[in-house]
């Protein structure tokens, strides 16, 4: 008996899939309760969330929830590491969503580990944390929805994809104020989802400069799909890649 559940939370479908023997209803309950707390506190769509109140100046940073301060400090560190391409204020207002999702899912994985689970995955709207393994993770083809563009085999890892996949996900080049050109999607794998997701967002926002930047990342592998169906993979990404059948 294993536990698998899907709920819509934080504006996206989240799948928790525990493959260990036994029933895990309480652990999975705790995960979704945690994600609902994150949504209530960090949502940019809820006028009464702490993030919205901070943005409007109704809440001082010093009075914000300690976890809010932790996330915003983390955003600042990432802004430095990505040369400004990961920016919680890229759209002109405070929006740490690009980090919150990965950060929240990393903590969800910690909650499951602490409950004793060893082999599980959490898939939050297409960004993924896996524990145990190996897991085979397909990267959705950015233009052909009936295809996967690559398959990677991962154990104790996280993988995030940024691109023009999801409606409502409008990644903006913070220096030009518009979406990047020439890049269809960037997939980053690494140890934690907060970093992988932020790096994928930043590399996508960089446009054609993104692939070279990903090649210098420590502890992360990346695959960039460029317009014209050209694919650039870092060595680390290729080490995880498994062969696929070619189309007929």
């Amino acid at each position: 008996m294993t536990e698998r559940r899907l709920q819509h939370v934080m504006g996206m479908p989240v799948v928790v899939d525990v493959r260990d023997d036994g029933a895990w209803p309480d652990a999975v309950d705790t995960v979704f309760a945690w994600l609902r707390f994150v949504d209530t506190t960090f949502s940019t769509h809820r006028p009464d969330s702490e993030v919205c109140r901070l943005d409007r100046g109704e809440l001082a940073l010093a009075d914000a929830h300690p976890l809010v301060r932790e996330v915003l400090a983390h955003c600042e560190r990432l802004r430095g590491k990505t040369g400004g391409y990961f920016d919680a204020r890229a759209a002109g207002r405070l929006d740490p969503s690009g980090l919150v999702k990965g950060w929240a899912v990393d903590r969800a994985a910690t909650l499951l580990s602490e409950a004793g689970a060893r082999r599980f995955c959490v898939n939050a709207g297409g960004d993924v944390v896996v524990r145990g393994g190996p897991w085979r993770v397909g990267v959705q083809h950015p233009r052909q929805r009936d295809r996967v563009a690559a398959v990677v085999e991962l154990t104790d890892a996280a993988v995030a994809t940024s691109g023009a996949y999801e409606r409502g996900e409008h990644i903006v080049d913070p220096f030009r104020g518009r979406p990047p050109a020439g890049t269809l999607a960037v997939t980053v794998l690494g140890r934690d989802l907060a970093t992988a997701d932020a790096y994928a967002t930043a590399a996508y926002a960089m446009g054609e400069r993104g692939p070279a930047w990903t090649a210098r990342l420590r502890g992360c592998g990346a695959m960039t799909i460029l317009a014209g169906d050209r694919v650039l993979c870092t060595d680390r990404f290729l080490r995880h890649r498994v062969p696929m059948l070619s189309p007929p």
Binding site: V15, D17, C121, N123, G126, D127, V128, V130, W135, R136, V137, G138, V139, Q140, H141, Q144, R147, V148, A149, V151, V159, A160, T161, T187, V242, P243, M244, L245, S246, P247
Partner: peptide, 10 residues
């Protein structure tokens, strides 16, 4: 583009 035995999709 192809397909393979996969557990989940990013």
């Amino acid at each position: 583009a192809g397909s393979a035995d996969i557990d989940l999709v990013t």
